[in-house]
Computed example of a mutant assay.
Amino acid sequence: MIKKIKNIFIEGAIPPLFIADSIAKHATKKNIGAHSIFLGQIREDVVDGKTVKAIEYSAYEAMALEKMQEIREELFSKYELSCMHVHHSIGVVNAGEICLFVFTSSKHRNIAMEACNEIVEHVKAELQIWGKEIFNDQSHQWKINS
């Protein structure tokens, strides 16, 4: 059986109502005892005296989605998760807006929290997603993850 690969990409910032709706949809799932949520937000960093006003994300989408599917399968086999949702922005996301939304659910909090943290680390280290920092003066540079 071929599994359908889930699209994790959202054009622009991830809206707060999308996040709230995702949480609300889980109220009917009575076997869940814990959720863990990570929200990545664009910082207004100052780099070499210039202020970051936005990050423009691009990706090798097919490769990133295939890798995310591998990560999903690995973590579902490692942890007793009820649900796992990952959403990442593509395009321009302004400082203060959300660019990454990771949401895990399980019967127990430690499992949900550990899995959520591990997913974030995999996404940052392994997915073919790049960010270009856009500064207030309209100059830009590729972001280096720390």
Rank of each mutant, 00 (worst) to 15 (best):
F76L: 15
M68P: 08
A125R: 14
Y79N: 12
N94T: 01
C116I: 03
G131K: 14
M84L: 15
H122Y: 14
G131R: 08
F135Q: 02
K107T: 13
N136A: 11
V52I: 05
Y57V: 05
V102T: 07
G131W: 07
V52M: 01
K132T: 08
H108K: 12
I119M: 10
S105L: 01
S82R: 09
E66W: 09
N94R: 07
V86D: 13
W130N: 09
K78D: 10
A115E: 06
C116P: 09
E121L: 02
E114S: 15
H88G: 02
M68G: 07
I111K: 11
R72W: 01
A62K: 14
Q141I: 01
I144A: 11
V92G: 00
F76M: 15
I55R: 06
D137M: 04
V93M: 02
H140A: 09
S77P: 06
I55P: 06
I71R: 10
N117I: 06
S82C: 09
L65W: 00
E70C: 07
K132W: 04
N94I: 00
I134L: 02
E61C: 06
A115C: 12
S77R: 15
G131Q: 05
M113K: 15
F76G: 14
W130V: 09
F76S: 14
V52S: 00
F135C: 03
F101I: 03
Y60M: 05
M68E: 11
A59C: 11
W142E: 07
I119D: 03
V102G: 06
K53D: 01
H122M: 09
Y79I: 01
K107H: 12
E80S: 14
A59D: 11
M113H: 14
E126V: 00
I144K: 15
F101Y: 05
W130R: 11
N117Q: 13
Q128P: 06
E66K: 15
S105K: 03
S77F: 07
M84N: 11
N145M: 03
S58T: 13
M68Y: 09
S146M: 10
Q138P: 03
K143Q: 05
H122D: 11
K50M: 06
Q141C: 07
T51R: 10
I144M: 10
G91H: 04
H88K: 00
N117P: 00
L127K: 13
K78V: 02
N136F: 08
T104S: 10
K78L: 11
R109N: 13
M113D: 14
Q141R: 12
V52W: 01
T104V: 04
G49C: 02
I98W: 02
N145G: 05
Y60V: 04
S77H: 13
A59Y: 07
A54L: 06
S89N: 01
S105M: 02
L100E: 05
H85A: 10
M63F: 09
T104C: 12
E70K: 12
N94P: 00
L65C: 12
E126I: 01
A95W: 03
T104N: 07
